[in-house]
């Protein structure tokens, strides 16, 4: 089944609504390992993305491009910049595509993961947003519609956050005090998990 502009715009809208409740929770998680602003930064970035009228985009490539530009204007933080620049990569990758299907989601997420690794110098296993993205990319492989992808993504993020909780952070500010990060969730990974669950909360049947 086709992955549509409407579905992506609806996902952004859900993420923006979810941020109202997540902002201070993510700030608090970040305060334990960073400077306590991950939630506020993402609220601003996703708010700017929602305000960029993604539903009016002419194609999936165009909607990714709009979201990337809105995000890049809203922040220069590491996490926000990585997020936005990966969307720009997806926009470029899908520019010539006539249509994007749910079956393509896994490879697109994998490309976003690789782009973020190249830009941010983090590796898989460092306990960052990349590990969560990698888990979702693998989990949605073979899923052909929104419902299947949403279910697989929810299961993957629930699994990955538990899998990494007991490990040390090897990237970002927390890397300087890695042993302290054992038992704590990485704020970027936690944000990705929470937003994935918000976006994938219900099957998206609209086309």
């Amino acid at each position: 089944m086709e992955l549509t502009v409407f579905q992506i715009a609806e996902g952004v809208s859900r993420a923006a609504r979810a941020m109202a409740g997540l902002e201070q929770e993510l700030n608090a998680a970040d305060a334990k390992l960073g400077d306590g602003d991950t939630g506020s930064m993402l609220a601003r970035v996703i708010g700017a993305m929602a305000a960029s009228e993604p539903q009016a985009a002419g194609s999936v490539s165009d909607v990714f491009g709009r979201l990337a530009r809105a995000g890049m204007s809203a922040t220069g933080s590491s996490l926000g910049t990585l997020f936005a620049s990966s969307l720009l990569g997806l926009s470029k990758q899908t520019r010539e595509w006539e249509r994007v299907d749910w079956e393509d989601l896994s490879s697109l997420l994998a490309a976003a993961r690789d782009g973020m690794m190249a830009r941010g110098n983090a590796k898989l296993g460092d306990k960052t947003v990349l590990d969560a993205l990698d888990a979702v990319a693998a989990a949605v492989a073979g899923e052909v519609d929104a419902e299947g992808a949403a279910r697989a993504a929810r299961e993957a993020v629930d699994r990955v956050i538990l899998e990494f909780r007991g490990r040390p952070c090897r990237m970002g500010r927390a890397k300087f005090f890695a042993e302290k990060s054992v038992g704590l969730d990485d704020p970027g990974m936690l944000a990705f998990v929470a937003l994935t669950k918000a976006v994938a909360e219900l099957p998206q049947n609209a086309t």
Binding site: D37, A74, S77
Partner: peptide, 10 residues
């Protein structure tokens, strides 16, 4: 940039 955030690309 914003408080404790890098400057944006623009």
């Amino acid at each position: 940039g914003n408080v404790f955030e890098g400057p944006n690309i623009d």
